[in-house]
Computed example of a mutant assay.
Amino acid sequence: MSIRALIFDLDGTLVDSLPDLAEAVNDLMAANGLAPHATRAVASMVGKGVPVLVQKAFAAHGVIVAGEVLDAHVKTYLGFYEPRATRLTRLFPHAADMVKELAKSYRLAVCTNKPAAVSREIVDSLGIGAEIAVVVGGDSGVTPKPAPDMLWLVAERLGLPKEDVLMVGDSANDVASAKAAGIKVAVVRYGYTDIPADELKADFVMDDFRGLPAVLEKLQ
């Protein structure tokens, strides 16, 4: 195996977007007469795309939303979130330096269940847009993570076989997607998952992005 590209999850892996996500969720709750959620509670709702995030936010108040009602709430949520998506969001420590260093030798991509346009806006605003060759979002037209389809689509757009790609994530969703896709996966310990990283059954576990060179060395 010779790794030629890395695919990063976005929220909880590459960027700490929780403050912006939580504010948008709580604006949606307020618009519907519901109490706000604690920021950390919102973290457990993130990772399976905007519709699931919205469903979980309402479900935590005992409100079930689906169908056209869910679609309307998703539209409202995005109206709150997208204008502020880069206001408080920051790269996690060591991510910027490692991304810039890795880009000298590897192709880099982002695979996230959030919409592609706002995801591209985030990486561009944080100064790593030039290093990220491909961004695939939950609106890409294929089944989102934890299905393997998005990772296969990223590999296709990179022009590489899946065997040449490493996935870097933070959650059970990322691990399940990578394993279903036949792609090696490393996870960070600081992400938004409620399950400890060491229990996610990833191929590699790292404290932070500084662990990536050692992981890549093992895969060469």
Rank of each mutant, 00 (worst) to 15 (best):
L21F: 13
P161H: 07
V54C: 08
L34D: 10
Q220S: 15
A22G: 06
V52G: 02
A43I: 11
G211M: 07
V52M: 12
L166R: 04
M167V: 08
V187Q: 01
L151A: 06
D198F: 02
D203R: 06
G159M: 11
K48G: 12
P51R: 11
K48H: 15
G49T: 12
V63A: 07
I122P: 03
V65M: 08
R4A: 13
E68F: 04
A197D: 02
I132V: 09
V52S: 07
Y192P: 04
Q220M: 14
A43H: 13
A96N: 04
P115S: 00
A41N: 09
T13L: 03
S119I: 00
K145W: 09
A95E: 01
H94E: 06
L21C: 13
V188D: 10
L153P: 07
L10I: 15
L14V: 14
S140W: 04
A172T: 14
S17M: 03
D20Q: 12
G159I: 12
T143R: 15
F80V: 13
M206P: 08
Q220R: 15
A72N: 09
V54G: 09
A133P: 03
K218H: 06
E199G: 07
M206V: 11
L70G: 05
K48W: 05
T89L: 02
I183A: 01
K75W: 07
D124C: 10
L126H: 03
E131M: 05
A180L: 04
R107E: 08
F80L: 12
A109V: 03
R84T: 09
A5E: 04
L91P: 09
S119R: 02
